[in-house]
Amino acid sequence: MKEQLIKAMQRNQIIDLIYMSKGGKITKRRVKIIKMTDGIFQDYCFVKHAKRTFIIENVLATSSVFRKENVVV
């Protein structure tokens, strides 16, 4: 999981992640990773509209967010 998070940060990607809090609550977040340190990462959470800190071990799944381009024909 850590490798996927590092790639998303290096590519400046927005990702969806499934996260389990310390209390066991599972949430889905859309985030952009700002920085990573030993076992944690800081990001901007689009759900909470604020910077948040997450524990890498508690990330259950990730997926890239692809934006559709508006095309005028």
Rank of each mutant, 00 (worst) to 15 (best):
K48V: 00
S21L: 08
I34E: 14
I40R: 01
F66W: 10
T37M: 06
N58E: 09
V47T: 07
T53E: 12
F54A: 05
I15L: 10
A61E: 15
C45F: 06
K25L: 04
F54E: 03
K48W: 04
V47D: 01
K48G: 04
A50H: 07
K28N: 12
M9S: 02
I14N: 07
K32G: 03
K28S: 10
I33T: 03
R67Y: 13
Y19T: 07
K22W: 05
G23H: 03
R29Q: 08
Q13C: 11
S21C: 07
T37V: 09
N12A: 10
N58F: 09
N58R: 15
Q4N: 15
K22V: 04
C45P: 02
K22I: 04
I56Q: 11
Q42Y: 05
T62G: 09
E57F: 06
K32F: 05
V65C: 09
K2F: 14
V47W: 02
C45S: 05
I18Q: 08
N58H: 13
T53V: 15
Q10L: 10
D16H: 09
E57D: 15
Y44D: 01
L60P: 09
K7L: 15
M1F: 06
M9I: 08
T27G: 03
V73D: 04
I18T: 08
V71N: 02
N58L: 13
Q42P: 00
V65P: 00
R67M: 12
K32R: 13
I14L: 09
I18L: 05
K25W: 13
R11E: 15
K22D: 12
A8H: 09
I15H: 01
K25H: 14
Q4V: 00
V71A: 01
N70T: 11
V47K: 03
T27V: 14
I34W: 07
Q13A: 11
L5F: 11
A50D: 15
L60Q: 14
H49P: 00
C45Q: 02
I6M: 06
Q42N: 07
T53P: 11
C45K: 03
R30M: 11
T53I: 14
V65T: 10
I33H: 03
F41D: 03
K35N: 14
V71T: 05
F41A: 02
Y44Q: 01
V72T: 08
G24K: 06
F41C: 03
H49Y: 08
F41H: 02
R30L: 11
K25N: 06
K51G: 01
G23P: 04
I6E: 04
V72G: 05
I55V: 12
G24A: 02
I33R: 02
Y44K: 01
I55F: 13
I26M: 00
M1E: 10
I26T: 11
K48Y: 06
V65G: 00
Q4E: 14
I18P: 00
L5I: 10
G39A: 09
V59G: 09
N12L: 10
K35D: 14
H49V: 00
I26N: 04
R52Y: 12
M1W: 06
Q10W: 01
I55M: 12
V72W: 08
M1K: 08
S64N: 11
I33A: 06
D43R: 01
I55S: 04
I55Q: 13
C45E: 01
M9Q: 15
E3F: 11
M1Q: 11
R11Y: 09
D43N: 07
V65R: 13
I34F: 08
V31E: 02
